[in-house]
């Protein structure tokens, strides 16, 4: 009797294991399907010139298609625009986010910080298209034109809550003994934060920043209202500028440029994956 029962329990255990494995595999399917699709379609287009040349005009692309040649040009204008806007957004968002996160981690019970914390959650959940339209009202309208500045303001707003959260979480999991040891030596709270806690949390914070960048690099909606797009390489920050996700949308809308969609998508996808993997690797290394 007992033997039978044991057998039954072992069987149930095995069945459960299979079910769990099945569902775990199912979550990986969409990722690999997307990766496979983009890789297969975009692989051909990746070449050196794809990264160094700007978007071709519709006319040039049409000519190339008629002659049966591959479409010339690339996405250099988009890559440079993305980098400029991300860079400007990060320069402001990283210090602001770290200071804010440090404040939240240090004063978890104060009413002000609880409010700020709640607002951070709300900001993180705000649809990006709304951030785009609001930035349009705030920056594009007063400046009388689309610009890289406006785009980076939108990206800044999207990055900020992510950096605040990751800084706060990392500081909170540091052992309390570090902070106490710093204070016991007579340091004030600001110096202990700056010289002991933040350096100890560096790995986690840096990972958070990388994840925040990879999170907003593919944002398209807010840039449509702010950066607009531009078909050539531009470094001035008060003029409309291109970005890789914007280009994908432009290619989709232009029948002559559709072949470029997949190359641009593949670049964006690989870039985000690399950032994510780097972040994971750093987090692991930091935890050791």
């Amino acid at each position: 009797m007992t033997h039978l029962k044991t057998k039954h329990r072992l069987l149930a255990d095995k069945a459960m294991l299979w079910i769990v494995c099945l569902f775990a595999t199912l979550t990986a399917v969409p990722l690999f399907a997307i990766l496979g699709e983009v890789l297969l379609r975009g692989y051909d287009q990746l070449s050196w010139s794809f990264f160094t040349e700007t978007t071709p005009t519709a006319y040039k692309a049409m000519k190339a298609i008629e002659a049966g040649e591959p479409i010339p040009g690339g996405i250099a204008n988009g890559i440079i625009g993305t980098m400029i806007m991300l860079g400007m957004a990060a320069i402001v968002a990283v210090p602001t986010g770290i200071l804010c996160g440090a404040f939240l981690a240090e004063n978890p019970k104060n009413r002000f910080s609880q409010t700020v914390s709640y607002l951070t959650d709300l900001l993180q959940g705000t649809p990006s298209v709304i951030i785009g339209i609001v930035t349009y009202m705030w920056v594009v309208v007063p400046m009388k034109g689309y610009s890289a500045i406006a785009g980076s303001v939108a990206l800044f707003v999207m990055m900020l809550p992510l950096i605040i959260r990751s800084t706060e979480e990392t500081l909170k999991i540091l052992p309390a003994s570090l902070k106490e040891a710093g204070l016991a030596l007579g340091g004030n709270r600001a110096r202990v934060m700056l010289k002991v806690q933040l350096p100890a949390a560096f790995g986690g914070i840096f990972t958070g920043v990388l994840l925040a960048i990879s999170r907003v690099i593919g944002e398209t909606a807010p840039l449509m209202f702010t950066a607009l797009g531009c078909s050539f390489i531009r470094f001035s920050i008060d003029k409309p500028i291109s970005a890789v996700p914007l280009l994908i949308w432009e290619f989709f809308n232009d029948p002559n440029l559709q072949e470029l969609i997949w190359g641009a998508s593949l670049f964006l996808l690989l870039f985000v994956l690399t950032l994510n993997l780097t972040a994971k690797y750093l987090a692991k290394k930091w935890n050791q």
């Binding site: 106490e180 040891a181 350096p199």
Partner: peptide, 11 residues
């Protein structure tokens, strides 16, 4: 003050 667990600053 010296604490129970040694806490040298890791960085």
């Amino acid at each position: 003050m010296v604490f129970q667990r040694p806490a040298p600053f890791p960085t």
